[in-house]
Design a binder for these strands. Sequence first.
RNA 1: GCACCUGUAGCUCAGGGGAUAGAGCAGUGGUUUCCGGUACCACGUGUCGGGGGUUCGAUUCCCUCCAGGUGUGCCA
Length: 587
Amino acid sequence: MKKILTLIEQELAPAFEQAGYDAGYAKVTVSNRPDLCEFQCNGAMAAAKAYKKAPIMIAGDVIAKLEGSRMFESAQAANPGFINLKLSAGFLADYLNEMREDENLSVEKAEHPKTIVLDYGGANVAKPLHVGHLRPAIIGESIKRIGRFMGHKIIGDVHLGDWGLQMGLIIVELKERQPDLPYFKEDFRGEYPKEAPFTISDLEEIYPTASKKSKEDAQYREAALQATYQLQQGRPGYVALWRHIMDVSLPDLKANYDRLHVTFDLWKGESDAKPYIADMVQNMRDAGIAREDQGALVVDVREEKDTKEIPPCIILKSDGAALYATTDLATIVERMKLYQPDEIFYITDKRQEMHFTQVFRCARKAGLVKEDTKLTFLGFGTMNGKDGKPFKTRDGGVMRLQQLIGDIEEEMYHKIMDNHEIDPGQARETAKIVGLSALKYGDLSNQAPKDYVFDIDRFTSFEGNTGPYILYTIVRIKSILNKYREAGKRADGRMMPAKSESEKALMLELARFNAMMENAFEEAAPHKVCSYIYDLANAFNRFYHETKILTEEDAARQAAWICLLSLTRSVLECCIDMLGFEAPERM
RNA sequence: GCACCUGUAGCUCAGGGGAUAGAGCAGUGGUUUCCGGUACCACGUGUCGGGGGUUCGAUUCCCUCCAGGUGUGCCA
């Protein structure tokens, strides 16, 4: 379905032309003065210079040509040259009736669907997910869902950190603790044990210990670097250990992502890039773009127009080992080969922007991607505590994601129990659903690139711009629709022209849905979905408060309102699905 | 040092070349013969960090300064 703004512009364009002005001036936006009008066109002011005429005169000319249009209830010129428009209630009702029958709720699928690899997990094996993994997971999940809704093929890849120094650190620490294990004997030729010599909780303790040691002990660090290199070279014992680490970590990571309703199509990692590294590096050497510098192999990525120094992209460290840039580049090679994407879209901490600038330039220079393959980096900001500093536990440590989710569910549980007589088991279930909405909405309602303050009290509140408030609104609508159905009536009517201001306001919000969604995708901005549903929920609640629906005597009018509610519910539910959460039946 | 990002109400945040810059929270007061009051309504708050420039019009674009954050070759 066409956007309502497009339809209005199409109505206005001929009026501009007939009045003797270029149709290009017929640009329409939602009004920023709702007290005066619903839509506005500023084209008369833009045209004033070209036609050497007062804007108000131009606006008047155009409006004269709109005489007799069925689309508008009113069209007025206002100083200095605004064209103020109000839609006719009948036109709006027709539009919404069509929207209700549209399987995509009026959203037009992409004309040319793109294949996009979305890289958004960034979890490291052997390390539990912590709060730092929250943003990429839920922002990525949302962008994936929005993209799919718009008709694109989105391939979500968790891109595990499973090939870097952290692996060497674990190996070294393990060797120190259990030196007799066969994995460490170079001349071992037998079968390695099937069972890992550690559990997930062991790993969660081993890694931080090793990481700490390596910062204090240069020799220890050296050993870890060495082990990393040997692992990458395929030393059998280390590869076997690596397998164990993967086998132990993956189920745990999956369980945690599941809890967030975050899923990936691909569970690949840095290690999957390994088979592509050697060829890629050789090609870079052959092409003459890679050079030795201070013992490392680097590719220069500076460009003339740079305003700052961009250091060369390091392909191989001086000890010959691969590093972050190496696996990212080789992963591009793999993705191009396996999926032929039109775009590769990365979601990581914004502090990695420089790294991706280097990687993207290097990939282009080395011809790893096609000329028209888009490489996009979306950097997100830090999640801060109430003090405005990066979120920490009370003792200053990094908080686990599990802990954070648990805290929110607990908070939600108490709020639900405080206000209702409800079975505790039921309340626990509801708390999970509502808690997830609090967590995700709290995060997604902020612009991704900005830092934001994580405030559990605010996010879990049923009042204000929060997930629970949105869910409450949906649950309330469901309740009315259920009562209507229980009364034996069928929801098969059609919407009628709005009777009240609040009803029309609600309808106008609904009509904005397709344009909003398109924009949210183009700008990779889930927060626009949040701000939209908040407006929509408000519009609904206002309408609800002044309209008695179930006691309405005019059956046709009642049926029309039921339609309006049903559409409102559909749009709200579609939007929260885009954000990655759902509504309970009751709360 | 250099580069990038941010600076909007007491707090948390939207918005964005145009008409009177908006929400929520917090505060005060109201609304119930109640379809879920975890709702709705009303009231107050701003040098849009400072200064210049472009423009008919700047909070929005450009320059500069200030403040904070981040990055700046072998971690990821």
